[in-house]
């Protein structure tokens, strides 16, 4: 499917982008929340700064993987000034395709490690 392959092309080279989508799969978030959650979920390996985050978001907005959310979360937790983002159906498909690809890679690597000559 050409649309899917285009989407995973965009993802393939950025672990950061992958985590942003992962965070947004759990619901709508504003920028700072994405930064914080991405860091937590990745065990500290994805540390996004604001500029990097918004550049990635800009690209994902352009590519149609995320959109600005019109809905707001519960009123008491809301902050008027903040903008919230959510994953589009295309974004969902892209992340699924990427996960498949990585699973296939991991399986191939495991198999190779089991079959290969012993190292020690």
């Amino acid at each position: 499917m050409p649309e899917n392959s285009a989407a995973s092309d965009i993802l393939r080279f950025r672990q950061d982008a992958f985590y942003i989508l992962l965070v947004l799969l759990h619901g709508e978030r504003h920028g700072y929340a994405i930064m914080r959650e991405a860091r937590e979920r990745s065990g500290g390996s994805v540390v996004l700064q604001a500029g990097a985050l918004y550049r990635l978001l800009r690209r994902m907005l352009d590519d149609g993987l995320v959109v600005e959310s019109q809905r707001r979360p519960a009123a008491d937790a809301d902050d008027e000034r903040r903008r919230y983002y959510r994953v589009t159906p295309l974004g969902r498909r892209a992340i699924a395709a990427e996960a498949e690809r990585m699973a296939a890679l991991a399986a191939a690597a495991r198999a190779a490690l089991r079959e290969g000559p012993a190292l020690a």
Partner: peptide, 17 residues
């Protein structure tokens, strides 16, 4: 273009950080 789209968010994030 980028600044117009995101400057408010960037400043928010700056404060949070």
């Amino acid at each position: 273009r980028f600044r117009r789209a995101f400057d408010r968010d960037l400043i928010e994030a700056f404060r949070d950080q």
